[in-house]
Structure formats: C-alpha cells, structure tokens
Design a binder for these strands. Structure first.
Length: 403
DNA sequence: ATTCCACAGGAAACAGTGGTCC
DNA sequence: GGACCACTGTTTCCTGTGGAAT
C-alpha cells in the first residue's frame, strides 16, 4: 500500500477536496430559494393560494409535469412563503405535505396526513392508527379534527397519480366532498402534484371538477435551460476551473434527451465529479460525464436485481438461459430452476406479471409476436449487461449455487 | 371464413400477517 | 379474545387476441 496515496486521501478529507467545494448543492436535498425559469409557475401557485389567505376559503390546484421539472420544489417554496406571511399576520394556516408514492397505499396516505397534520399527537380520540381502522373511519377522524379545530388546511399530495393508479380516487372524493360541509368550520385546500398528464381522466367527474379548479403544467427544461441551471449549480458546487464547459454542455444534452430532467442532470454532474476525484483529475471533463452515465445505469440495475425476490431472480436467470426468449421456454426454464433449488414454482400467471414488472423497470424488453396457428408469445430479451445480472445474482448466497 | 394455438392480462378471491377496537 | 381491518403476494378463472393453417 502506497502511504502517500492514503495521506493524499486524508489530506483531502481534512483540507477539503480540490474539485468540489460544496457537495450538498449537488444533491436532491438542496433546493434553491428561487428556481430558475419558474417565475410564472410560482406566481400562478401564489395566486391560487392567496385565496386561502385573503378570503379564507378553499382553493384546489393540480400541478402537472415530468419528473425533474421542479414542480415539488416550486410548490414547497411558494408554500414556505405563504407560511411566513400568514405567521406575520397571525393567520393560522396548517400545511400538510405527503408523498403518495412513498406512502404506497391509500390508507398509509391517510395515516401520513394525520401524522403531519398533528391529529395523532394532539387528539388521542381522533388518532389514526397505523392499521386497524377502516378507510372511512380514518377519513372521518381527520375531517373531524379539521372541523373541531377550525383548521384552514393546505394539503399537498405529491405524486398524486400513483395514489389514484393504485387505489382509485376514494380519498380525493372524500376530501373534496367534505369541503362542501366543512367551510364554516375549517376546510382543506388540496394541491395535487402529478407526473402524469392523463391522470385526471381516471378521476370521478365530480372529483375532477372540484380538484382541477386550477391547473398548472410544468414544461420540461430545454437543453439551453438545463445548461444554465447546471452552470449556476456548478458555480456553487465546484472550485473555480474544476469543471470544463464542454462537460456541462454534455451533461445538459444527456439530461435534455431524458425529458429535460434537471434532477438527473445534477446527479450526473455529482457522479462525474466523484469519478474525477477518484482519478485524482484536476478538472471534470466530458469523459467523466460519459463514465458517470454508465455507472448510474449499472448501479441502478444492479441494485434492482439484487433487492428482488428469489422468484424474480429465478425468472431473470431463466430469461438469461433461454435460447428463443419465448414465454413458454422461459417458464419451462423457470420450472426446472425451481426444481433444482427445491422451491415451489409460481403459476404462469404470476410469472407473466413478474415479466411485465421487469419490463417496466427496463431490465428486459418484450415484444409480442404471433406464430399464427402456433399461438402468440412474447419474445423476452435481457436489456442490461449479463455481467451486471451475474454480479447481482452472485451476491445472493441462495442463487450463487445455480451459477 | 373459420379454426385453433399459446399465450396476455383483467378481475376476483384467498391466505397469511400484523394491527386495532370493543 | 373475537371481530374487524388493510395489505401483500399469490392463485384461479376467464376473456381476448393475431395470424398461420385449414
């Protein structure tokens, strides 16, 4: 071991790194006070919310936009301003922000709302328990709490589309309907943030009309805008002369291709810088961006496979071992692998579901082909490098015996 | 034009788990 | 302690489908 090398690492740890001066500004935790290119959107949200502040009546809003377009950050920024203003003027506004995707189920969304709103801490009688209550009872308790305390609530549901996809619009129906009888004694203003523009179509018409009183679409950033955002961020994050303009341009171009996702662009920049650091390079260049792109892709695929269930792993291996990639062959392979491992095989229906999940994750590609009288089938192909798969499978002691 | 294969995939039901309520 | 609830992962049942073979 080269002791100079270790010294160098510790030296950097003590005196700070030569490339990055502020690592936090390259993470998703860092949200600037004002997001570039989002003035109009901020104004619209503020106008909608001002109704709550001025007239004391509920006002709903739906915000749409692809991932990484700054929707959530802008909403949170504007709400923080509103909170500050209402505090200054002694107006009591309760802000509750929940994420429907991390909450995972509609009941968990209700639980999170109760937690955030304070129902669970303040009012033991109206506590929404982690489980055990019916959906109706949980909703009633939250509404009762709002009524009893005459709260003016601004409820932000991030990734609201995943809530509707999985569990329908029951919760939204209850909340939007409840406002009709609540207004005298408190109310809930709802702000829904959605990645999907078509999500509205899945709503009950009554929910749709009251929820989408106001709508706002966040367009994806253009490559030029991304470049400017990255330049701004690079100034905060890097020491002078530590990153080349060409690297930033490439980073913006890559992210621009992927729906103008600013979060991804910044993440790419961070990983590239870390690679450059490890190489002890003095400047981040295009090569590092390309390497970072590969690394991010590889790491996500590896993690996804590694954290899958045994049966999903067996399906992946069955696909890898398959000559034709046809559903029937893949299932046969899977059955024999299960026998080898002394496992009870799942039904073909379930395997179809697993294959479609893998497809959605981008780990495989599948095309339906018809062989005429010989039936229809899918041609399933692995979409990531077999090395990545093998490494992920090897790390599972149970699977490694098969390799 | 009809038949038929090998599936895809939706809907409903079920089992098991972990929890609350009364 | 039994009734009830939500959730996950799965099975069972069923209908629909494209196109070669008849």
């Amino acid at each position: 071991m080269d002791s100079d090398y270790l010294d160098n690492i510790f030296e950097k740890a003590v005196i700070g790194n030569s490339l990055i001066k502020n690592r936090k500004t390259l993470t998703i935790d860092y949200v600037p006070e004002k997001l570039p290119f989002r003035d109009e959107e901020s104004k619209t949200i503020a106008q909608v919310l001002s109704v709550v502040l001025k007239d004391g009546r509920p006002s709903n809003l739906l915000v749409f936009g692809k991932p990484g377009t700054g929707k959530t950050a802008v909403v949170k920024n504007v709400i923080n301003r509103l909170k500050r203003k209402s505090k200054e003027h002694g107006i009591g506004i309760t802000v509750t922000i929940v994420n429907a995707k991390t909450a995972n189920t509609s009941y968990k969304v209700l639980y999170d709302i109760a937690e955030e709103m304070g129902t669970n801490k303040i009012d033991k009688k109206l506590k929404v328990h982690f489980t055990g209550l019916s959906m109706g009872e949980a909703t009633d308790r939250i509404l009762e709490y709002v009524k009893k305390n005459q709260l003016q609530v601004i409820l932000v549901i991030d990734e609201i589309d995943s809530l509707v996809d999985r569990n329908g619009d029951d919760i939204l129906y209850s909340f939007t309907r409840a406002n009709e009888r609540l207004t005298e004694s408190g109310f809930i203003s709802l702000i829904g943030i959605s990645n999907s523009l078509t999500f509205k179509d899945k709503l009950d018409p009554r929910v749709r009309s009251s929820l989408s009183e106001e709508e706002l679409v966040f367009n994806p950033y253009t490559v030029l805008q991304l470049k400017e955002i990255l330049n701004e961020r690079a100034q905060l994050a890097f020491n002078e002369g530590s990153i080349s303009q060409a690297a930033i341009n490439l980073c913006a171009a890559v992210a621009g291709k992927e729906n103008g996702d600013a979060r991804k662009a910044i993440d790419l920049l961070r990983v590239a810088a870390e690679i450059a650091e490890r190489e002890r390079a003095t400047i981040v260049i295009e090569k590092h961006i390309r390497e970072a792109q590969e690394k991010i892709e590889k790491d996500t695929n590896y993690e996804v496979i590694k954290n899958s269930t045994t049966h999903t792993k067996l399906v992946v291996l069955s696909i890898l071992k398959s000559q034709t990639g046809m559903t029937g062959e893949v299932y046969d392979n899977y059955i024999s692998l299960c026998k080898m491992m002394d496992q009870d095989a799942l039904t073909q229906r379930r395997i179809t579901q697993i294959v479609s999940e893998l497809d959605q994750l981008g780990l495989i590609t599948s095309n339906v082909v018809s062989h005429g009288r010989y039936g229809r089938s899918q041609i399933i192909k692995i979409a990531v490098s077999s090395n990545t798969i093998m490494n992920a499978l090897k790390d599972d002691p149970f699977m490694s015996t098969l390799l």
